[in-house]
């Protein structure tokens, strides 16, 4: 939880640094997804992570979006969906870095699209912000996938 708190704060600092330039991707959500989908994670741990995402999302909304509950609901829904797909739809042999990366990318895209819907900035600016946000998310997703790959290999 300390690690997640630090990631939330780092994301907050990054958004503060880039305020007025671009929106940053939800690294906090991606980090929770990364932890929740790691091999050997129990349902109990995943459930706790969902509520951590709820609190982090609520704080993010109170700080940055002025729509308290939106990020919480979207994040928790996406994590729940990702956990179901990962454990119920994918066989254990299929839980490789590629589907992991696709799930992370899909969640980030859905998260950003939901927020975009509530923006009132001009459509051109919104599109530009959306594209930049997704481009910044690419290296973050690659890093998490690389970490997932390393941990999966280590744990056999």
């Amino acid at each position: 939880m300390i690690m997640l708190s630090l990631i939330w704060l780092l994301q907050d600092f990054a958004q503060l640094m880039l305020m007025g330039i671009c929106m940053i991707p939800d690294v906090f959500l991606l980090a929770i997804l990364f932890i929740a989908l790691l091999p050997g994670k129990t349902k109990e741990e995943q459930s706790k992570l969902i509520w951590a995402a709820f609190i982090g999302g609520l704080l993010w909304d109170l700080r940055w979006t002025n729509l308290p509950g939106l990020t919480s609901a979207v994040s928790c829904g996406l994590i729940g969906l990702a956990c179901v797909i990962w454990q119920k739809r994918l066989p254990s042999t299929g839980r490789t870095p590629l589907p992991f990366m696709l799930i992370l990318a899909g969640c980030e895209l859905l998260y950003a699209l939901t927020h975009c819907f509530f923006w009132t900035m001009p459509s051109q600016s919104a599109l530009r912000q959306f594209i930049v946000q997704q481009l910044i998310a690419v290296p973050v997703i690659i890093v998490f996938t690389w970490l997932f790959s390393r941990i999966s290999e280590r744990d056999g």
Partner: peptide, 10 residues
């Protein structure tokens, strides 16, 4: 938990 959290968020 996810379902309850989404409802709580809403």
């Amino acid at each position: 938990h996810s379902f309850i959290a989404v409802l709580a968020g809403a």
